[in-house]
Structure formats: C-alpha cells, structure tokens
Simulated scan of single mutants.
Amino acid sequence: MTRLIEAKNIGLTLADRTILEGVNLQLHAGKITTLIGPNGAGKTSLVRLLLGLQPASQGELWRKPSLRIGYMPQKLHIDASLPLTVQRFLQLGGAGAAALKNALSLTGIAHLLASPMQRLSGGEVQRVLLTRALAREPQLLVLDEPVQGVDVNGQVALYDLIDRIRAQQGCGVLMVSHDLHLVMAHTDEVICLNQHVCCHGHPESVTSDPAYLALFGAKAAQTLAVYTHHHDHKHNLHGDVVCNHDHSLPLEDCPPAAQKDESNA
C-alpha cells in the first residue's frame, strides 16, 4: 500500500504539559484508520500535528510529497445573519467545477445547493462538509467526528458512504471518533490513544486488548458485538432502508427475487 503519512515517536508539550508522547503511526492509501480515545486523550492535537497545523515537540513526521488532504472539521459555526448558501460555501473552498460536481454526485446533496447553511439539519451540514473535503480530490481524507449531530440511521448511511468513497477514490481515510458502536464496523485499523498509543490493530483484536478494556470497559466490547453483525440491507443518505442490489430503490420497490434475497440474507 502507498504510504501517505508516517509518524515516528512524535510528541507534543504545551506550557509544560505533555499532550502526546511517543506516538507512532502510518496512514496508507485505500485504508480506513480510526482514532479513538477518551476525552482529553489528545486526538485533536494529533490530527493537528499530522495536518501540519501544529509543530511537534519531538519525533519525526513524514508526509508524501504534494499530499492532497481533504479535511472535515468536527464543528462549523456560521453567524445566523450571514447570507451564505450551500453552493457559495462550497465554492469558497476553491475547488474546480468538475471536482465539485463529482463530490456532489458522491454525497447526493445537489438538491441543497440553494439552501441557506443556517437552515440545514445536522446530517445535512455533515454531508456539506464532507462534500467540501471531497472537492479537493484528496489522497487522504481526514474526518473529525464525521457523524456528530446525526441520528443512528444517518450515521449508518454516512459510514457506508465513507466506505464507498474509499473504494471508488482509492484515498486513505483517517477518522476521529468517540463512538465505539458503529465506527468499529467501518474501519480497517483502530488506534486507541490516551496521550500515547495504548493499542492498535484490527477492530476485533483491539476490543479484546487489556489496554482498550481498561479505558472503555468490558461493557463497551460487549456492546460492539451487536454492531459488527452482517447487515442484510442498506441505508441511503436519508436513513431509509434500500435494496442491496440497487441503492437508489426503496426495499419495497426492488425486484421480487432481490427482495427474497434480502429477507434470506
């Protein structure tokens, strides 16, 4: 796999306080890596280091030359009096028309272009932010709490979308999340952070690691088991159940043979 970013023994100290210590990680093209950890673990600080927004206090950080990064922030604050439509907000990102059109086709929000940003739902805001990140045609997509403010069905739809984007675009994905339930079923590697890397690896191996259990408890691992089952259906971006064979069709409208397949899955 193509290496995009590698961190070797990086650390961060601010005002004599250790924020991060001895962190090692690699991010690769075509691979979804999820960063988890309790509040105050240093997740946001680590992302800032990887993006080059904050210099490390120690260690080595390597990025692929001319690496294109698409970043989706955790929150967006827009003044209620600012007349800003979705289309204008996306254009402010500086992407070309073709790249923006392709991003809109991936996220399915073209119908929102004339809507004021302030009137969007939480899920719609997240999809707009994802569209703007994708319009940069990134080799690495960095998503900070991508399903914040989205209901459970919408979360499933967004994670499925991220899977498809990774498959279609071949980009690497770094997700930051505190949601252990759904995110673990949509990632290739988990990095458990608490100022340092406590454990890392495939989700199933991480959830049985003593360091993970010490941070989140055995109950979290038991809850995870509920969410790592095989899905017998799909959700669209609006959270509706759709046909596995044609994601544009509601389940009740898919062909009878396909409905039989769905019910027997």
Rank of each mutant, 00 (worst) to 15 (best):
L4H: 13
R63F: 00
L61N: 12
A99V: 00
L158Q: 11
L82V: 14
P255S: 12
Q91S: 14
N236S: 09
D16H: 09
C192L: 13
P65V: 01
G201E: 01
R164Y: 00
C171F: 04
I109T: 11
P255D: 12
C243S: 15
E6K: 14
D79C: 02
G172S: 03
R127Q: 08
Q54E: 15
E124W: 04
D151W: 03
P83R: 12
C171K: 07
G59T: 11
S121D: 14
R68F: 01
V142T: 04
A221Y: 09
P65A: 03
G40T: 00
V152M: 12
A221R: 15
N102P: 00
H238Q: 15
R3W: 00
Q195I: 07
M1F: 01
L4T: 07
Q259L: 13
T228L: 09
V150K: 08
H231C: 01
D151I: 02
V206M: 13
S105G: 11
Q87W: 00
E60W: 01
L50C: 06
R127G: 06
A95I: 07
A29L: 07
L14H: 08
A133R: 02
G108D: 07
L12Q: 09
Q155V: 05
V197I: 14
L182Q: 15
L14D: 00
G239R: 12
V173R: 06
H230F: 01
Q155F: 04
L104M: 10
L249G: 05
V128D: 11
A214M: 03
A133C: 08
K101C: 13
G94M: 12
H238C: 09
G122Y: 07
I162P: 05
L104D: 11
G40N: 07
R88W: 01
T18Y: 04
R17Q: 15
D253F: 02
T44L: 10
I165G: 02
P73V: 03
R132W: 06
V197M: 06
L12H: 05
I162L: 05
P250A: 14
I10P: 03
Q118E: 11
S105Q: 10
A97C: 09
A97D: 14
G52L: 09
V197L: 07
H186Q: 12
R17K: 15
V197S: 13
I78K: 05
K234N: 08
G154P: 04
V173M: 06
K43P: 03
S248L: 12
L49P: 01
